[in-house]
Computed example of a mutant assay.
Amino acid sequence: MNRLLIVAIIVVFLLLGLRIAQKYERAIVFRLGRYVGQRGPGLYWIIPFIERRVTVDIRTKTVELEQQETITKDSVPSR
């Protein structure tokens, strides 16, 4: 009974640390607040309650900007 409880606690501890990063994400891992490295994409493991991850999206984002008018040296407006 005691061994079964210990094994169950170890299995739960190991499963708590499993993480997955998508192919467009990277995980920045901090151990006790200090940078340790980056993980991903795919399945990786962190130490539960000691390491923390911050997920960063690395996809390119486009933003719509309105067209601006500029003036050249000879004071001719151009777009």
Rank of each mutant, 00 (worst) to 15 (best):
N2E: 11
R3L: 13
R3H: 11
R3V: 11
R3I: 12
L4N: 14
I6C: 08
I6V: 13
V7P: 06
V7F: 15
V12I: 12
F13W: 11
L14K: 08
L15N: 06
L15F: 11
L15E: 05
L15G: 02
L16I: 01
L18G: 08
L18K: 08
L18E: 07
R19H: 09
I20S: 08
A21C: 10
Q22A: 14
Q22V: 05
K23C: 05
K23L: 06
Y24H: 15
Y24I: 10
Y24L: 05
E25G: 00
E25R: 01
R26I: 02
R26G: 02
R26H: 01
A27S: 03
A27K: 01
I28F: 02
V29Y: 03
V29A: 04
F30V: 08
R31K: 13
R31P: 00
L32P: 03
L32T: 08
G33C: 04
R34N: 11
Y35V: 04
V36A: 12
V36F: 07
V36Q: 10
V36G: 00
Q38G: 07
G40K: 00
G40P: 02
P41S: 03
G42D: 02
G42E: 00
L43F: 13
L43I: 12
L43K: 07
Y44L: 04
W45F: 12
I47G: 00
I47N: 00
F49A: 05
F49Y: 06
F49P: 02
F49R: 00
F49V: 04
I50K: 03
I50R: 03
I50S: 01
E51W: 07
E51D: 15
R52G: 02
R52M: 04
R52H: 07
R53T: 12
R53L: 07
V54T: 09
V54F: 06
T55Y: 06
V56Q: 09
V56L: 09
V56Y: 04
D57P: 01
D57R: 02
D57A: 02
D57K: 03
I58F: 12
I58G: 07
I58V: 14
R59M: 09
R59C: 06
T60H: 13
T60N: 15
K61P: 00
K61N: 08
T62C: 04
V63K: 06
E64R: 12
L65Y: 05
E66T: 13
E66M: 09
E66G: 05
E66V: 12
E66C: 06
E66A: 09
Q67G: 09
Q67C: 08
E69T: 12
T70R: 15
I71D: 05
I71P: 01
I71N: 06
I71M: 13
K73C: 06
S75R: 14
V76M: 12
P77S: 13
S78R: 15
S78V: 15
R79G: 10
R79W: 15
